[in-house]
Amino acid sequence: DETGKFLVLALYDYQEKSPREVTMKKGDILTLLNSTNKDWWKVEVNGRQGFVPAAYVKFL
């Protein structure tokens, strides 16, 4: 149950560059965990948590 969690859509592919980031593919649906930083949002994708560039995702 994803109640209270926001979902975001990956607009572009992103390859993680550090262990704190996660890789996503364009079209992936991600669970948004934290968006307090304007540049990097914490998400969960494929069972992994990490950061992606905020400009690469949008709210569903």
Score class of each variant (00 low, 15 high):
Asp1Thr: 11
Asp1Ala: 15
Asp1Gly: 14
Glu2Val: 14
Glu2Tyr: 05
Glu2Phe: 06
Glu2Arg: 05
Thr3Phe: 12
Thr3Ile: 12
Gly4Glu: 13
Lys5Gln: 14
Lys5Val: 10
Phe6Pro: 13
Phe6Ala: 14
Phe6Trp: 13
Phe6Lys: 14
Leu7His: 10
Val8Ile: 10
Val8Thr: 04
Leu9Glu: 13
Leu9Met: 15
Leu9Ser: 06
Leu9Val: 15
Leu9Arg: 08
Ala10Ile: 02
Ala10Ser: 05
Ala10Pro: 01
Leu11Met: 11
Leu11Ser: 04
Leu11Phe: 04
Leu11Thr: 05
Tyr12Leu: 09
Asp13Gly: 05
Asp13Glu: 05
Asp13Ile: 02
Asp13Trp: 02
Asp13Cys: 04
Tyr14Lys: 01
Tyr14Ala: 01
Tyr14Asn: 01
Tyr14Arg: 03
Gln15Lys: 11
Gln15Gly: 08
Glu16Tyr: 04
Glu16Val: 06
Glu16Phe: 05
Ser18Lys: 07
Pro19Met: 08
Pro19Ile: 10
Pro19Trp: 07
Arg20Tyr: 15
Arg20Asp: 15
Glu21Ile: 03
Glu21Tyr: 05
Val22Trp: 05
Val22Lys: 01
Val22Met: 10
Thr23Gln: 04
Thr23Met: 04
Thr23His: 04
Thr23Gly: 10
Met24Gly: 00
Met24Leu: 10
Met24Tyr: 01
Met24Thr: 03
Lys25Asn: 09
Lys26Trp: 03
Lys26Ile: 05
Lys26Leu: 05
Gly27His: 05
Gly27Asn: 07
Gly27Glu: 02
Asp28Met: 10
Ile29Ser: 04
Ile29Thr: 07
Leu30Phe: 06
Thr31Arg: 10
Leu32Met: 05
Leu32Arg: 01
Leu32Ser: 02
Leu33Asn: 02
Leu33Val: 14
Leu33Glu: 02
Leu33Ile: 13
Asn34Ser: 13
Ser35Glu: 06
Ser35Leu: 08
Thr36Met: 12
Thr36Trp: 10
Thr36Asn: 15
Thr36Lys: 13
Thr36Val: 11
Thr36Glu: 15
Asn37Val: 05
Asn37Trp: 07
Asn37Ile: 06
Asn37Ser: 09
Asn37Cys: 08
Asp39Arg: 13
Trp40Arg: 03
Trp40Ala: 02
Trp40Tyr: 08
Trp40Asp: 01
Trp40Gln: 03
Trp41Cys: 05
Trp41His: 03
Trp41Leu: 07
Trp41Ser: 03
Lys42Arg: 13
Lys42Gly: 06
Lys42Cys: 10
Glu44Ala: 09
Glu44Trp: 05
Val45Gln: 09
Asn46Leu: 07
Asn46Ala: 10
Asn46Thr: 06
Asn46Trp: 07
Asn46Gln: 11
Arg48Trp: 03
Arg48Val: 09
Phe51Leu: 11
Val52Ser: 01
Val52Leu: 02
Ala54Trp: 02
Ala54Val: 06
Tyr56Met: 12
Tyr56Ile: 06
Tyr56Glu: 02
Tyr56Phe: 13
Tyr56Val: 06
Val57Asp: 00
Val57Trp: 01
Val57Lys: 00
Lys58Glu: 14
Lys58His: 12
Lys58Met: 13
Lys58Arg: 13
Phe59Met: 15
Phe59Glu: 14
Leu60Thr: 08
Leu60Arg: 04
